[in-house]
Design a protein around this nucleic acid. Sequence first.
DNA 1: CGTCAAGAAAGTGTCGACACTATTGCGTTC
DNA 2: GAACGCAATAGTGTCGACACTTTCTTGACG
Lengths: 252, 252
Amino acid sequence: MNERSEIIALSDPQTEGETRRSADSSERAYNTIRKLLVEFKLKPEERINEVQLSRSLGVSRTPIREALNRLASEGFVSLTPNRGFFVRSLSTEGLLDLYELRTIIECAAFRLMCQRAEDDQIERLRAYWTAIVEGYQDHPPDVILAEDEGFHLLIAELSGNPELVHQLSSINARIRFIRRIQIEHRTHDKAQVSSHSAIVEAAMNRDIERGVELLRNHIEMTVSATQQALKDALLKVFAPGDASSKTRRRRA
Amino acid sequence: MNERSEIIALSDPQTEGETRRSADSSERAYNTIRKLLVEFKLKPEERINEVQLSRSLGVSRTPIREALNRLASEGFVSLTPNRGFFVRSLSTEGLLDLYELRTIIECAAFRLMCQRAEDDQIERLRAYWTAIVEGYQDHPPDVILAEDEGFHLLIAELSGNPELVHQLSSINARIRFIRRIQIEHRTHDKAQVSSHSAIVEAAMNRDIERGVELLRNHIEMTVSATQQALKDALLKVFAPGDASSKTRRRRA
DNA sequence: CGTCAAGAAAGTGTCGACACTATTGCGTTC
DNA sequence: GAACGCAATAGTGTCGACACTTTCTTGACG
């Protein structure tokens, strides 16, 4: 029984018993597949079988392919002509590059925010943070992650440049899987909290240099933990006993 | 005869008379449609008719849709559920945001290049520029544009971060249409040339601050010209007599 | 005359099928 | 027994068709 017969329900289960095709299964396929990627249900370097996926999700291959194309331009998967889609690899360098890009975007966003945002907008940032800071460390990992991303996204929004928001969202999605693992480790929660508070303070003082410095440290701090998290991720993904030789190929 | 019956040949015309479907028409559709967008054959805000396009390109709707999905995640077009794809609007703010993002990426790339690149890599940059500087101003606009993009992309490559290359490529593609118009105006060729030379020099001296400053000016210089270019673009696109009221909608 | 509604037309979203390509397994040859 | 090639299988790329949604047209009603 090689056929993986488990049915992965689409995020939004269709409430109707009728077969009538209703809404936008392409969008749902996108969300579902992205989740599979984030959660390592689809493993790095693995070839994605469209037919199998379409059976699992209960839709035809068309919406699957549309979703995969989107995911390809976002960097989640890659497309090799006539061979299909492959899950993005889980290389350390790739991740570090992504973190570096994130730092660049965030620092620039902070700078622009300080230069452009009105006081009441900065106040929104402060309010956002104080609203969640209380129970921050006690929240479940997913919530912490969402709150953290929300904080940084808000800075991007306050920069006044929607492109920055878009870029940051995209980057966040791609590093989310590893961040979640990091957060589960609970390595430096306290440092995170004080970082955020300090960033808010710098924003209120419009102190660009300090804010940029804080952000840089804030992100680089997590980068150091990424190395360890990656090892754990690899262990978690290629379960013990799973001879990963199938995916271990020569690399140019 | 409302049906626009002109056949737009795909970039790579099929040499065989036989109808047999050969290679990757999705990729070709992507390139062709992107060119149509860049050249304003498809006008801003316009709704894209998939059937019409597929007839023009001589392929079915499937590869058209795949191409459009890719173009959507790259920001060339937008997708409204059940209504289809629309050409990205030609708003000034949007373009300025993009230029701003470009400045951010490029300055960061320069910084990283100075910190990381070997001397012989910097030499490659110098060589690239000296190789093209001679006839630079006499080249046709498309060539100038390609050479300029190549120069900046090379800096991104030398930063050692492939993500920066990818981002910059994507940005370039999106602002290419307006840059081409700018270049056709031939406003400040000489300034461009000397900018590039100065940037190379700063790179060889590993003078980050100077290089960043040069880049910032270099790009912002073109931004000022963008305003004018945009007006021209609008005129060019919505030909005289074409009552553009159809596309002129209220904006929030 | 303008407004609105119902029907017609146009267009998108998804499907199943088929052509072509890559991969796997098997038999042949040395 | 190993390397090679060939057939069988699995999988992607594209197509034409159809269901559903939006948009346009037309005609009734105020």
